[in-house]
Design a protein around this nucleic acid. Structure first.
Length: 116
RNA sequence: UUAGGUAGCCAGAUGGUUACAUCUUGUGCGUAAUUGUAUGAGAUGAGGAAAGUCCGAGCUUCAUAGAACAGGGUGCUGGAUAACUUCCAGUGAAGGCGACUUUAAGGAAAGUGCAACAGAAAUAAACAACCUAAAAUUUUUAGGUUAAAGGUGGAAAGGCGAGGUAAGUGCUCACCGAUAUGUUGGUGACAACAUAUGCUCUGUAAACCCCACCCGAAGUAAGAUUAAAAAGAACCGUUACAAAGUUGUUCGCUAGGUUCUUUAAAAACAUCGCUUGAACUGAUUGGCAACAAUUAGUUUAGAUAGAUUACCAUCUAAAACAGAACUCGGCUUAUAGACUACACUAACAAA
RNA sequence: GCGGGUGUAGCUCAAUGGUAGAGCCCUAGCCUUCCAAGCUAGUUGCGAGGGUCCGAUUCCCUUCACCCGCU
């Protein structure tokens, strides 16, 4: 799990990010991004009710958080929400991280980070 | 040996690195102090069903928590339990070669309803059968007796056999069944035995209903604390009419009630409720058992976007179903694989 | 977490416990020079599993899927 300060918690924040954020899609996940005031980034994970069991849903959340936690230094400072879509039940850790990297490249945030 | 029956247990293990939650604690920063913040150490950290939410309780609130009706639930007997649509032991019935299993099992003679099609007839009696007489010539009419066989149907008037009869019929008899009475046994459901009655009176109550017993409602997102709040607006009532009040209707009850806006760092994104509980483990005693009593020991998750991870190695053929959210007692459903016990059962083989 | 509701033909719906129907759709034929419209005929079934009953879409129990409300 992430540290407490890096988690998104409140329902208002989630709704704000859903409304105002830029969305990027791939096959298994969608990503919403919004800029923050704070010097650290806050990240939230959601899995919809239609994906599998509560056990598998919880497992996907943990995999996503682990993938973010290992690559926290690469992330530019923003607020993120990652949503898992149907079909993501059978992914492993490496595939999740690859998907996330693909999303970040697609959004153009990672390139800037590499140039700096 | 094979196929079963019953009862029960486990729910991958070990090691390494790593992440998170709670609690305890050390150090640094900061503060008048608490809170805070950063970083270390230690301990603990999800099931047999945590699930479904099908029942029953605790706890909290609702007017003082009341009454009647409606509505709902349960339904063989005795016991267990805080309580129960639960459990245990029995009775009856059904199934199985058997060990054994299953069982919402009161009342149809209180009343109402329904029973399609078929069949003469469906809850009451004649498609017909037999006999007698007359006509007439293989049929009709009149009278009488009876309920056997036939086919229909889920169900057909106690069953089967013998005697008897014009043909038949509990008309008579034996056996079985039924009903009533009595005796004995059992706490009881009921069972056994004896005697009597030839014994019309279907099924359905998981159709309405009757009888007996039980049930107020909502749910921790209940609710409480921090506060001493202040100001304003709207509606209803203050004439017990009317309105509001935690299911429906009526009675009874409550005198103020409901909603909204603004201000203050915050009236929630805070704290409590929240985990010591009809708790768990072991022993002894009582009981066939469910369970109870006594005694010794243990303290065992408590989050609020919501904690048990990720990777690797070894064992292994492969690891099922599945994630606490106030707490207990049950029920139901899902479930890979491994294991244990039995004077258990059947078949086959050998002695 | 708590509460409520619905499952019938490809779609929208109906039904007294007696063996399931209507409209649109689809198929074939008729009509028309051809198409459309119209007429005739036909195909496709009660979410799943048990029980009560002679008999269940209907009654009872369990279960699955979907939808809605509180938050």
């Amino acid at each position: 799990m992430l540290d407490k300060k890096n988690r998104l918690k409140k329902k208002k924040e989630f709704n704000y990010i859903y409304k105002k954020g830029n969305a990027f899609f791939c096959k298994f996940f969608t990503m919403y991004v919004v800029k923050t005031k704070y010097p650290f980034s806050q990240i939230g994970f959601t899995v919809s009710n239609k994906v599998g069991n509560s056990v598998t849903r919880h497992r996907i959340k943990r995999l996503m958080s682990e993938a973010i936690r290992q690559n926290l230094n690469l992330l530019p400072v923003n607020n993120y929400v990652f949503v898992a879509r149907a079909g993501s039940e059978e992914l492993g850790l490496n595939e999740v991280t690859n998907n996330f990297l693909y999303l970040l490249k697609k959004s153009g945030l990672l390139k800037l980070n590499n140039e700096n």
